Simulated scan of single mutants.
Amino acid sequence: MENNKDDQQDAVESSETGSDGNEEMNSEPSSSTPGAGSTGEREEPLPPTADGPDDSGHGENPEPSPAEQFADSARTQAGEAASALRRGEFMHNAAVDVTADSDDRLIALLCYVTQVLIPLVMPAIVLLSASSKKRPFQRFHAVQSLALSITFIVFVLLLSVSLTIVAVVPVIGWLVTGLVVACLMPLLVLMGFMALAYYGYQAYQGKRFSIPGLTSFLQDQNWI
């Protein structure tokens, strides 16, 4: 009997000891393990790609087109020509070309004075001739006289178109158109003839000269 009691007490003590051990194990905090995808390192931002937009905000200005350069040069030189005419200046930088012989001077004269009767023909013949490259004096005055004649023609055409538009207005338009045609047009034609004769005479003297506005424009275009 005593042995049985001792065995029962030992069993009770062992069961209590086991339960206490289980409680201690359950009471210990469980350590959390990091996730499988977490590396614990800080990700560095990627540098901007070369194809990305430029944040500088300073774009290069596009170069003007040849047409814009032509128009700007024409507008500038037209203003200079108008200023020179108001001052009564019809020629600049006149200087005798010692390389021009008598034939050169005669051809240069004809390039100007023939515009009165046959516009554009004589300068075109000089420029198309094979010897024009060997005759810089002739070529200079041929280009200049041709440009001068074209300027006169364009001016007359613009004036004619303007008068046609004004003539549409009854009475007042007719009066303005008649006044311009009767008084202003003959004066402009006479001034053009006198200018051609004057420049032709200067060319016959063996001079190279600049017509205000016109010659500078031709030089800007590398035509002379």
Rank of each mutant, 00 (worst) to 15 (best):
P48E: 10
P48R: 05
P48Q: 06
A50V: 03
A50Y: 00
D51A: 13
G52I: 02
P53S: 09
D54N: 08
D55C: 06
D55A: 13
S56P: 07
G57A: 05
G57F: 13
G57T: 12
G57W: 08
G57L: 11
G57E: 11
G57D: 11
G57I: 10
H58A: 14
G59W: 03
G59R: 07
E60W: 01
E60T: 00
N61P: 08
N61A: 11
E63R: 03
P64W: 05
S65H: 09
P66A: 10
P66T: 06
P66C: 08
E68T: 08
E68M: 06
Q69Y: 03
Q69L: 14
A71Q: 04
D72P: 05
D72G: 13
D72A: 15
D72V: 07
S73E: 12
R75W: 09
R75K: 13
R75F: 09
T76S: 12
A78E: 13
A78W: 12
A78I: 10
A78C: 08
G79L: 15
G79M: 14
A81P: 00
S83K: 08
A84V: 00
L85H: 15
L85N: 15
R87A: 15
G88W: 04
G88R: 00
E89N: 10
E89W: 11
E89I: 15
E89C: 09
E89A: 11
F90P: 09
H92Y: 11
N93M: 06
N93A: 07
N93H: 07
A94T: 09
D97Y: 02
V98R: 12
V98F: 10
T99H: 15
T99A: 15
T99N: 12
A100C: 03
A100I: 04
D101G: 14
S102I: 02
S102T: 01
D103A: 13
D103E: 15
R105H: 07
R105D: 01
L106H: 02
L106W: 05
A108I: 03
L109N: 03
L109V: 01
L110W: 06
Y112G: 03
V113L: 04
T114W: 12
T114H: 03
T114Y: 07
T114R: 08
Q115L: 12
Q115H: 13
V116I: 15
P119D: 10
P119H: 11
L120M: 13
L120S: 10
V121S: 03
V121I: 08
P123Y: 05
P123M: 04
A124S: 14
A124G: 08
A124R: 07
I125Q: 03
I125F: 04
V126R: 08
V126F: 02
L127S: 10
L127K: 10
L128W: 02
L128T: 02
L128F: 03
L128S: 03
S129G: 14
S129A: 14
A130Q: 08
A130N: 06
A130W: 08
S131C: 05
S132F: 06
S132Y: 09
S132K: 04
K133R: 13
K133E: 12
Q138H: 07
H141G: 03
H141I: 02
H141R: 00
H141A: 02
A142T: 00
A142R: 02
A142Q: 06
Q144I: 14
Q144G: 04
Q144K: 01
Q144D: 06
Q144E: 11
L146F: 14
L146G: 14
L146Q: 12
L146N: 05
L148C: 08
L148P: 00
